[in-house]
């Protein structure tokens, strides 16, 4: 055990240098996913037939294909038609577009769970549909979606590791590099697993705090 600690301390700085990449990739993708997810959810609830269909097709495609395939397609496939991204950008786009599909479904479920009387009351006051959505439905739906959204956020934090496949030097890529240099794969992946657990636990605690902080009786 103490040997492992020595190993960990020796290689930790190099691995930790990848954390800004991992967290930056994750946070950017989650923000893209939340913004796009909300638009998709809106489209699937309130959109006209063509808009509803477009959003549904999007969700089905991005939920129905592996994220690794999506990432490889964006990074290696798109250059063939002249669209070129650096690895980190390609990874952000891939994870962002993918999580958007899932987040859209969580948002949609949360919006649907708000009783219809809430929108009726907003409309009866004189709010338009979008005003009612923004002022009344969304604040309630967002509170209700936090537990599911937290799950998704933690899932995506771990999924950032597949960006290593297209050459993003986040922490998993760094761990692998150390592994090949030292041939201590057991130690290095144990180290990296511990780092992921710490990160996901911190994120879970923060989101739990937010959930409690914004909770309202009766919601």
């Amino acid at each position: 055990m103490s040997e492992w600690f020595d190993f960990a301390i020796e290689h930790l700085p190099y691995v930790l240098q990848g954390i800004p990449t991992t967290l930056g990739l994750w946070a950017s993708a989650m923000v893209i996913g939340a913004a796009l997810g909300l638009v998709l959810a809106w489209a699937r609830i309130y959109g006209s037939r063509p808009i509803y269909l477009a959003a549904t097709v999007y969700v089905e495609i991005f939920r129905g294909t592996p994220m690794l395939v999506q990432m490889l397609f964006i990074y290696l496939g798109l250059p063939e038609i002249g669209i070129v991204f650096d690895p980190l950008t390609a990874a952000i786009i891939a994870i962002g577009l993918n999580t958007a599909a899932y987040q859209a479904e969580y948002f949609r479920g949360a919006v649907r769970s708000v009783p219809v009387g809430q929108m009726a009351a907003a409309r009866a006051l004189g709010m338009g549909q979008f005003q009612g959505f923004k002022n009344i439905i969304l604040p309630q739906a967002l509170r209700r979606v936090i537990p599911q959204w937290s799950n998704e956020a933690i899932l995506e934090l771990k999924y950032t590791s597949i960006a290593y496949a297209i050459g993003v030097t986040e922490i998993t890529a760094r761990a692998e590099k150390i592994g090949y240099e030292t041939f201590q794969f057991f130690e290095v992946f144990l180290l990296i697993a511990a780092i992921y657990v710490v990160m996901t636990s911190v994120v879970a605690q923060i989101l739990l705090f937010v959930e409690k902080r914004v909770s309202v009786p009766g919601l």
Partner: peptide, 20 residues
């Protein structure tokens, strides 16, 4: 519609107060 509804308020059977 939205302007006119501001002149004609509505009180619901089940209140529909904004929960949040």
């Amino acid at each position: 519609l939205n302007a006119m509804r501001q002149k004609v308020a509505f009180v619901f059977q089940d209140f529909n107060l904004f929960t949040h």
